[in-house]
């Protein structure tokens, strides 16, 4: 799920940036530092949409660096248990498949793939129904439900299922090409 929230961060700026563009520097550094990171509480910070306020800087002894408290608005993405997501399959193997929804990696075990889908090895490993009508392979887009998440310092890993109503492949690269 995406959230638009306000976060705060202390930014350190090198003295060489002091000048007219300091604010821009600060913002670009903030973007670089923060965008794409992940925190257990908020999830992935997808994009910074704006800076609310930049506090007074504090010069640090010895280094000359200045610390600014910066409040910024950002879009965060955090997967939840039970959430339905659409994801792109990145890898298929006999244990199941991995899919990615943006920065989130989701594993769908073969236990959580409908029983009528079977693993087919080969050049392009895939899961196919017995009648061959539905196929999950690399690059397929699937709709899945998250049944478990594990949040680390730097990534969120999810376990998903497509063994439920209305879940499964939503577009198949194999059929279009």
């Amino acid at each position: 799920m995406f959230f638009h929230i306000v976060l705060e961060r202390n930014m350190q700026l090198h003295p060489r940036h002091f000048g007219r563009d300091m604010k821009d520097k600060l913002v670009s550094k903030l973007m670089k530092d923060v965008e794409g990171t992940c925190s257990g509480r908020h999830g992935f910070i997808v994009a910074i949409t704006g800076v609310e306020s930049i506090g007074k800087g504090l010069i640090r002894d010895g280094t000359g660096f200045v610390t600014f408290p910066v409040k910024y608005q950002c879009v965060v993405f955090r997967p939840f248990k039970g959430e339905i997501l659409e994801a792109v399959v990145t890898m298929v193997n006999k244990m199941g498949f991995f899919a990615e929804a943006g920065p989130v990696q989701i594993f769908v075990s073969n236990h959580l793939i409908p029983d009528d889908m079977e693993f087919q090895t080969g050049d392009m490993p895939n899961y196919t129904t017995s009648d061959g009508s539905v196929r999950i392979q690399k690059e397929s887009e699937v709709r899945l439900k998250i049944i478990g998440t594990r949040v680390d310092a730097t990534e969120i890993f999810c376990i998903g299922t497509i063994k439920d109503d209305f879940l499964g492949v939503i577009s198949d690269p194999g059929s279009t090409s």
Binding site: M95, G96, S109, R150, I159
Partner: peptide
């Protein structure tokens, strides 16, 4: 790891590190 499925006495889980079942 995370539990993927449960068959009465047997639990299948995906290991956090190896991503193995």
């Amino acid at each position: 790891g995370m539990v993927v499925s449960v068959e009465v006495h047997v639990v299948n889980l995906v290991s956090d590190t190896t991503k193995e079942l």
